[in-house]
Simulated scan of single mutants.
Amino acid sequence: MPAPGTSALVVELPAAAGLFEAAVAVSPALVRPGLPPHVTALYPFLPATELTDEVDAAVTALAAAHEAVDVALGDLVVAPGFVAAAAPALQPLADAACDRWPGVQPYGGRFGAHPPAHLTVAMGGSDEQNTEVTKLVEQLLPLTARAEALHLVVLTEQGWQLRLTAALATPAR
């Protein structure tokens, strides 16, 4: 579990709430409280003590350099204790965040410098729970969710708190 002062860059996908609901139906403990369905662009991000106006401006610039996009969620990634929906449409944004802050190792370096963009549906479950969640979620897929903003969130004693919302660019029409 992350410690207070941890921050993250995330893209919320409220339209994917049904996926979380499916996991909660199996066990509420499978869904981490405090954040709506989201794809992580960079976690952990900078410690809260290092978040400055300059960092906020860099996050805003990063978001402005990427267009709002429809995110197709269709392929599941299942591993021991983990069920996620792949979100390849957000890979360019996640990669850009990792490139912009190369000193920050996403997920502590466990999945390389550019981990695959995904929406975690369930975490910490048994194989049986993963199987149940997978069956329920497969009934809801594919689905498309609109990504419109990059959020900088910080974990406090009270839970995850929003520090900044930076709009993604409006696609040219």
Rank of each mutant, 00 (worst) to 15 (best):
P2V: 15
A3W: 15
P4M: 12
S7E: 04
S7W: 03
S7G: 06
A8P: 05
V10M: 10
L13E: 02
P14G: 11
F20K: 04
E21I: 05
E21M: 03
A23Y: 10
A23N: 11
A23G: 09
A25L: 06
V26M: 02
P28F: 10
P28Q: 04
P33G: 15
P37L: 07
H38Y: 01
V39D: 11
T40I: 09
A41R: 04
L42R: 03
L42H: 09
Y43K: 09
Y43R: 09
Y43Q: 14
F45H: 15
A48V: 15
A48Q: 13
T52G: 04
T52K: 02
E54L: 10
V55I: 14
A57P: 10
A58M: 05
V59N: 08
T60L: 10
A63F: 01
A63V: 10
A63T: 00
A64P: 05
A65E: 14
A65T: 00
A68K: 04
A68Y: 10
D70F: 06
D70L: 14
V71N: 06
A72M: 03
D75C: 03
L76V: 02
V78D: 09
A79L: 14
V83M: 00
A84D: 03
A84S: 12
A85Q: 05
A85I: 06
L90N: 04
Q91L: 00
L93K: 01
A94H: 03
A96W: 04
R100Y: 06
R100E: 12
W101C: 10
G103W: 11
V104L: 15
Q105F: 07
Y107E: 02
Y107P: 00
R110P: 00
F111H: 04
G112H: 07
H114A: 00
P115T: 05
P115D: 09
H118Y: 05
T120F: 11
T120G: 07
V121A: 04
G125M: 02
G125P: 08
G125A: 04
N130R: 00
V133L: 00
V133T: 01
K135V: 15
K135W: 13
E138C: 05
Q139I: 08
Q139R: 15
L141G: 08
L141M: 10
T144C: 10
A145M: 02
R146S: 11
A147M: 09
A147C: 07
E148Q: 15
E148F: 04
L152F: 07
L152W: 11
E157M: 13
Q158P: 00
W160P: 05
W160E: 12
Q161W: 06
Q161F: 01
Q161D: 08
L164Y: 07
A167Q: 07
A167E: 12
L168T: 10
A169K: 07
T170M: 02
T170C: 02
P171A: 11
A172S: 14
R173D: 06
R173V: 13
